[in-house]
Structures are given as C-alpha cells and as structure tokens.
C-alpha cells in the first residue's frame, strides 16, 4: 500500500525532505517508523515519538491503511 509521510524538525533534516510517498508492507505506525529508521538513519527512539494519521493523534500501534497520511511528532518544545 501507499503511505504519505510528513517530516518535521530533526526528522525532516535526517530524511532530507518534508514529505514522501512510499510503498510499504508495514501494518502499523510503529512498523513504518522502524522501516523509515532503516532508510533514513533516524536517531529519535520510537518511544520518544508521537504520531498522527490523517491529522489526528494516534497510538504507535495504530493500523495503517492505503492512502493514509502519517505525521511523526518528535519531542515538542514550544513556548
């Protein structure tokens, strides 16, 4: 299935892109992040991330469906 991924902050820098579309066999958000860590050398542990699918926060074990847009949220530091 095809998933679109949006990157921010350190993940954007490490992936060298704002977003990408990717064919994947990952069935959950966590599996997708593991695959992307292999591809891009991400250094943020999965346990320190949050994720959103189609603009709503989800748990890392949330299932993926064809066409989903996934945003990974590194540790936040606003204010």
């Amino acid at each position: 299935m095809k998933i679109t991924i949006h990157y921010f902050a350190m993940l954007r820098e490490q992936a060298r892109r704002d977003e990408e579309s990717r064919e994947t066999n990952a069935t959950t958000v966590a599996e997708l992040y593991a695959e992307l860590t292999q591809a891009h050398g991400f250094t943020i542990p999965a346990g320190n991330l949050r994720a959103a699918v189609n603009d709503a926060f989800v748990k890392m074990d949330a299932p993926l469906r064809d066409g989903d847009v996934v945003t990974f949220i590194p540790p936040v530091a606003g204010g």
């Binding site: 921010f8 902050a9 350190m10 943020i44 320190n48 945003t71 949220i73 590194p74 540790p75 936040v76 530091a77 606003g78 204010g79």
Partner: peptide
C-alpha cells in the same frame, strides 16, 4: 502538547533541537 519544535543556535556556531 503543541507540535512545535525549537532549534537553539549557540554562540559557538553549533545548533541543537531541544528535547531530541
């Protein structure tokens, strides 16, 4: 909680994403 990220720029020209 807000998805906002902050990169600090230091006097010695290095940078760091806060909290990462």
């Amino acid at each position: 909680r807000l998805p906002v990220w902050k990169k600090e720029h230091y006097a010695d020209q290095t940078t760091r994403w806060v909290g990462m």
